[in-house]
């Protein structure tokens, strides 16, 4: 499938800023989806609200652009009502981890078959750069003018603890690994979660001395540590600071029975 068979050409130009990491994720996702030769007409794309959550509206298939934070709950209903549809959720750190946190952890726990891709740009991009639940400690945002005094969530670790079948985290600097994980997630039965640490040059980089997107990619390169090489005791991998690290890799790959199988819903489709 050509790029513009997969993405809707009539929606171009898109709303994303130059240098935004969302483009990289869209590119990797297209590759993963295409290489697996999945049927586009049998895949539904669901987004919440935010820059990242807009991706479904550019894909040439059924798209449900929902309310802020609730994409997983919408996807749960859609998937169980029409089990022959594959469901893919695009969400952001604010959408998934703040306002939608409850649906996120319960989605992992319930283990309905869906692929959830979170573009974690450490900020509320769409609303102009307010601190999010993944803004690193002491970083700048419009709502933390004296530096962020809170500490960030580790979304991937939450997904592991809550029971997702597949969990991986990469950055937009790791396009090959990310594409591979997206393929794994799309093939996984049950709740699969891929977090992509991504650059928002407009609203995060600019306020944190990394206005040029390449500076952020360099930050990602320097701070990323493969999960199998981390020594948890030595570093606080929750804290995505320059001084700390971004733990990347596959966090979990398991096969808990998914909810559809448990209630026999697969059969009614």
């Amino acid at each position: 499938m050509e790029l513009f068979e997969f993405y809707r050409k009539d929606r171009w130009p898109h709303v994303f800023c130059p240098g935004c990491g969302i483009g990289t994720v869209m590119n990797c996702f297209y590759r993963a989806f295409n290489e697996l030769e999945l049927p586009l007409d049998k895949t539904a794309f669901i987004g919440g609200i935010g820059c990242s959550s807009r991706i479904p509206l550019y894909i040439n298939s059924d798209a449900l652009h929902t309310t802020h934070g609730r994409a997983i709950a919408f996807a749960t209903g859609l998937r169980l009502a029409k089990p022959e549809l594959k469901t893919v959720v695009f969400t952001g750190d604010g959408d998934l981890g703040a306002i939608g946190g409850n649906h996120f952890i319960n989605g992992c726990r319930r283990n309905v078959d869906m692929t959830v891709i979170c573009i974690n740009n450490n900020i509320y991009g769409m609303t102009g750069g307010q601190a999010s639940i993944t803004t690193p400690h002491d970083y700048q945002s419009t709502t933390t003018p004296y530096g962020n005094k809170e500490y960030p969530f580790d979304l991937a670790e939450i997904a592991v603890a809550a029971g997702a079948n597949y969990v991986a985290r990469w950055t937009t600097r790791h396009v090959h690994e990310l594409t591979r994980s997206l393929k794994a997630a799309l093939q996984k039965k049950g709740f699969a979660f891929v977090e992509v640490v991504s650059q928002c040059p407009t609203n995060f980089g600019r306020r944190n001395k990394m206005a040029d997107p390449t500076q952020m990619l360099e930050w990602f390169r320097q701070s990323s540590v493969r999960r199998d090489k981390t020594k948890a005791a030595e570093v606080d991998h929750v804290d995505l600071n320059l001084a700390g690290q971004i733990t990347i890799g596959e966090f979990v790959d398991r096969n808990r029975e998914c909810y559809e199988e448990l209630i026999g819903v697969g059969k009614h489709g």
């Binding site: 449900l64 929902t66 709950a73 209903g77 859609l78 169980l80």
Partner: peptide
């Protein structure tokens, strides 16, 4: 949210 999703199914 879930019932709205289901309705689209």
């Amino acid at each position: 949210s879930a019932i709205i999703g289901a309705s689209w199914g």
